Simulated assay, not measured.
Amino acid sequence: MNDTTVSMIQAKRDPTLKAIVQKRIPLFYSQGADATSDRPAHVRAGSSLSWLGDKLALIQDDANFLVFIDPESLTIEAITLAAGEAGARQFDDLRGNKRFKLDLEACTTVPTPSGDLFLAFGSGSTTQREQILMVQASNPSNPELKQASALYAQLRACTSFSGSELNIEGAIFRDGQLRLFNRGNGKPNNNRVPVNATVDLDWNSFSAYLDTPEHHQPPALQNVCQYDLGKLHELSLSFTDAIATQKGIIFSAAAEDSPDVTSDGRVTGSVLGILDANPRWIELRAPDGSLFTGKVEGVCAFRNEENRSWIVIDADDPMLPCELCEIEFIAA
């Protein structure tokens, strides 16, 4: 699509919503650490999650391991992804290799004639981070990474979606469309400002491109929408994930003082919200009513319990496990 001006949609705080963190579970691999594959004992930086079969599939932005969580037994299995620079599968400032990470930040599960397909997207915040992870439900131990530079170039060039810096942080599949969410936490660049935005891709066209990106053009970008999510404790909110549910699209957003899309910053809290005809959100709180200040990176609805959701939070510390949290999320 041509880069054109689009309308800005306001999402406001709605005190009739409720989002309470009921349980926090630090995530450790059931197999323990494995030095030969550069795997630590803990799940480092969970960035998005989606159902694949009866397991929660969780991706990490700075470790090359796909994680499967059994929510009943809390068994946590690691699927090893390809090694990166110098054989590493962990990437951070302590090692000085953060620039080489896959930066998988968004995932979704798509029903297909051959079974469910799990997709995880690199953020695109640098040209190193333009790969898409594919996992078939019928063969989850055989993940495949596809280079998708042409798609990311198209997303970056559409500045009504990407704003000043591209940073894909959410993905959903709904009604034959794949929707991507850009996180507006970048720095101003070339007279452009960061934007929270969504864009739709026709699934059939996207699937053909993903199968053979060397022979197909990426699908046309459709229906770009920008969002003003407001502020939480003086910091602007920006998308961190989304999930399609029967209630509508539930999104997570964090208030983070990050200087650009590749750097972490101070977090004052996170929110859950709904994108429908009346976009709205509420901040997460602890059971005692105090503000929950964790950084929500991923969200996934419970099955068969409409007022329960999972979130994953990340302390942005490679030495600490990320946490899976059970949330009571009630929308009027």
Rank of each mutant, 00 (worst) to 15 (best):
M1D: 05
D3A: 06
T5W: 01
I9T: 14
D14S: 04
T16H: 06
L17H: 10
K23V: 07
P26W: 04
L27S: 04
L27I: 07
F28A: 01
S30G: 11
D34A: 08
A35Y: 08
S37V: 15
H42Y: 06
S47E: 10
L49P: 07
W51Q: 05
L52E: 08
A57N: 06
L58W: 03
L58S: 06
I59F: 12
A63G: 06
N64S: 15
N64V: 04
I69F: 07
S73F: 02
S73H: 12
S73I: 07
A78F: 05
I79V: 15
I79F: 02
T80R: 12
T80W: 01
G87A: 04
Q90S: 10
D93Q: 13
R99V: 11
D103L: 11
L104Y: 05
A106F: 07
T108G: 03
P111S: 13
P113S: 14
P113E: 14
S114M: 12
G115Q: 07
D116F: 03
L117Y: 14
F118S: 08
L119I: 13
L119Y: 10
A120D: 13
F121A: 10
S123H: 12
G124A: 13
T126H: 05
R129V: 09
M134F: 14
M134Q: 15
V135Q: 14
A137S: 13
N139T: 15
N142W: 06
P143M: 13
E144H: 15
L145V: 12
K146G: 12
K146A: 13
S149M: 08
Y152T: 10
T159H: 15
S160T: 13
S164W: 03
E165H: 10
I168Y: 02
D175L: 05
G176C: 06
Q177G: 00
L178F: 02
R183C: 00
N185R: 07
N185L: 00
G186A: 02
P188A: 03
V193Q: 10
A197V: 03
T198R: 01
L201T: 01
L201V: 01
W203E: 00
E214L: 11
N223R: 14
Q226V: 09
K231G: 01
E234C: 09
S238F: 11
A242W: 09
I243Q: 13
I243M: 09
T245H: 14
T245L: 11
K247S: 12
G248Y: 14
I249R: 11
I250T: 03
F251K: 04
A253K: 09
T268H: 11
V271A: 09
V271G: 05
L275W: 11
A277M: 09
R280D: 02
E283L: 04
L284Y: 00
R285C: 04
R285E: 04
A286M: 07
S290V: 01
F292S: 03
T293S: 08
G298N: 09
E305N: 05
N307I: 03
R308K: 15
S309F: 15
S309Y: 15
W310M: 04
I313C: 12
P318K: 10
C322D: 07
E323L: 01
C325W: 00
E326S: 11
A332F: 00
A332D: 10
